[in-house]
């Protein structure tokens, strides 16, 4: 990675990574680009050399039509590299998309339930948190728009849904991307490593406002997260009692209610 930190490429490689599983992606990324760079250099040198030689006044081309041994060699070596890549990447794919995080409930290992329900619609993100009943999709759910607070240091599972067209949940700094197909509830997971604020963007064309469909995700410690969520629940019940909230008691807050020391980017 450091090799790419030279001036012209400063800031033009992968952005910072704040996710556990993202590390495996970055590792593969560096590996693949190293392999590609080597192949590119070798083929480039061969090409340049062949062209150079041709310029040095041969009076007749050398006639040869094939060379079976050479051809077998240059089929087997790249073949081997490709098979290696295919097998080697398997672990990362497993962690990122196949192995849903588990947790222990009464000594039994079960799939970790989603912490937040993410609903995409043209051109905004809605984040639904479980209310005091700790269940999603119930009447006391909390609801925020375009801003999400999550704990770091633990596996977080999100349930993605779309109301209208296909959107894609893309967080570059978490190395997370998942298309959201209307009619499917899609699970994704990651584990953030530190306090951070990251951009969430839509990566599947969804209409004229596609580019503007962005959200922010703030990662805080578990303790901060819990107290924030409790506070939101209190705020919600207050506003319901005060009957001031018109929209079915939905509360909208902004990220400013969480205090974190990082000043954004």
């Amino acid at each position: 990675m450091a090799a790419f930190n030279i001036w012209p490429l400063q800031g033009l490689w992968l952005p910072d990574n704040y996710s556990e599983t993202g590390r495996t992606i970055d590792h593969l990324w560096t590996l693949l680009h190293t392999i590609c760079a080597v192949i590119f250099l070798v083929t480039g040198i061969v090409l340049a050399w062949a062209l150079w030689r041709a310029g040095t006044g041969l009076n007749k081309a050398t006639y040869f039509t094939h060379n079976t041994r050479l051809e077998i060699i240059w089929s087997i070596i790249p073949g081997g590299i490709l098979v290696f890549i295919a097998i080697y990447q398997m672990q990362s794919w497993n962690e990122n998309k196949l192995l849903h995080p588990k947790e222990l409930v009464n000594g039994v290992s079960v799939s970790r339930p989603p912490l937040v329900r993410v609903v995409a619609r043209r051109f905004s993100w809605e984040f639904h948190y479980p209310g005091s009943d700790e269940k999603l999709e119930t009447i006391d759910d909390l609801y925020f728009e375009n801003e999400m607070v999550l704990p770091y240091g633990e596996d977080v599972v999100l349930q993605l849904e779309s109301r209208d067209v296909i959107h894609s949940f893309f967080v570059p700094k978490l190395r997370v991307k998942q298309d959201i197909i209307p009619g499917h509830a899609q699970m994704i997971w990651f584990q953030a490593t530190q306090e951070a604020e990251v951009a969430l963007v839509c990566a599947e064309l969804c209409g004229w406002g596609h580019y503007a469909m962005q959200g922010r995700i703030k990662f805080v410690s578990r303790a901060e997260f819990d107290s924030w969520l409790t506070k939101q629940m209190e705020l919600k019940s207050l506003s319901q009692k005060g009957s001031a909230a018109s929209k079915g008691g939905l509360v909208q807050t902004s990220l400013e209610t969480v205090s974190i020391n990082e000043s954004g980017q």
Binding site: L14, T24, I25, L28, W29, L32, H33, C36, I39, F40, L82, I85, Q89, S92, W93, N96, K97, S168, F170, P172, R175, V176, K177, A203, E204
Partner: peptide
């Protein structure tokens, strides 16, 4: 070569639709 990079699904998570 960039095709091969993208054909690795975990990497494609990062660069699909970019």
């Amino acid at each position: 070569l960039s095709g091969v990079v993208m054909a690795v699904p975990p990497i494609d998570i990062m660069i699909h639709d970019t």
